[in-house]
C-alpha cells in the first residue's frame, strides 16, 4: 500500500493548494483507472476507455471535497471509478449499443461527394445523448460561448468542453463509418 500512501499524500497537498501535487495525483489516478477499466470492462475501443478515464477524473475533481483525510484514499477512488463505470454501462445499455455497421445500409447510400450528407449529420446529432446534443446545438447552431453554455446548463466549462469533444468524436465516428 505504499502507492496508496503516496496518493493520499499527494491529495492532501493538493487540497491545501499544491498545484503540482494535484496534477501528479490526477495523472496517477488516470493510470489506475485506465488499468482498472481495461481489466473490468474489456473495452475494445480505446476511445471508450479514455471516456471512462476522463469521466472518472472529472468526478474525482468535482467531488474532491468528499474525501475524508482520515480515510484510506484507495477505496474512495475505487468507489468513484465504479460509480462512473456503472453509469457508462447503463447509458450504453439504454441506448442499445447500435453498431454502425448494422445500420449503415439504412442510413445512406455511399456518396462520392466529399462533403457529408446533411441528413446523416442530423441523424448523428439525434443519436447523441441529451447532454451532448444540448452542448453541440448551443455552441454551433446558437453560437453561444462555452462560458454561456456552461452557466445555462448549470455545469462547468470543463464539462462543456468534454461533452463537446465527445459529441464531435461520436459524430465523426458515425459519419466516417458510413462513408
Amino acid at each position: 500500500m505504499r502507492d496508496e500512501c503516496e496518493l493520499a499524500d499527494l491529495m492532501t497537498r493538493a487540497l491545501d493548494g499544491d498545484e503540482r501535487a494535484y496534477r501528479a495525483f490526477l495523472e496517477r489516478v488516470a493510470g489506475h483507472v485506465r488499468a482498472l477499466a481495461r481489466w473490468k470492462l474489456r473495452l475494445a475501443d480505446p476511445s471508450d476507455l479514455e471516456d471512462i478515464v476522463q469521466e472518472t477524473i472529472l468526478a474525482i475533481h468535482a467531488k474532491r471535497h468528499t474525501w475524508r483525510r482520515d480515510r484510506p484514499i484507495g477505496p474512495w477512488i475505487g468507489a468513484i471509478a465504479r460509480h462512473k463505470m456503472v453509469d457508462q454501462m447503463r447509458r450504453r445499455g439504454s441506448r442499445g449499443t447500435v453498431d454502425i455497421d448494422d445500420v449503415v445500409d439504412v442510413l445512406a447510400a455511399p456518396s462520392d461527394d466529399e462533403t457529408c450528407p446533411r441528413d446523416l449529420i442530423d441523424a448523428a446529432l439525434v443519436s447523441l445523448p441529451r447532454g451532448q446534443r444540448l452542448v453541440v446545438s448551443a455552441l454551433t447552431i446558437e453560437g453561444r460561448s462555452i462560458r454561456e453554455t456552461a452557466s445555462r446548463l448549470g455545469t462547468t466549462e470543463v464539462a462543456v468542453r468534454v461533452a463537446f469533444h465527445r459529441a464531435l468524436a461520436r459524430i465523426r465516428a458515425l459519419v466516417g463509418g458510413a462513408s
Binding site: 477524473i57 472529472l58 462547468t156 468534454v162 469533444h165
Partner: peptide, 19 residues
C-alpha cells in the same frame, strides 16, 4: 480532448475555484 489536457484544465480549475 486528450486526458492530459483535461488534467491540465482541472488543475487550473482547482486553483481558481475556492476550496
Amino acid at each position: 480532448m486528450r486526458t492530459e489536457d483535461l488534467i491540465a484544465s482541472l488543475t487550473a480549475d482547482a486553483k481558481r475555484s475556492a476550496r
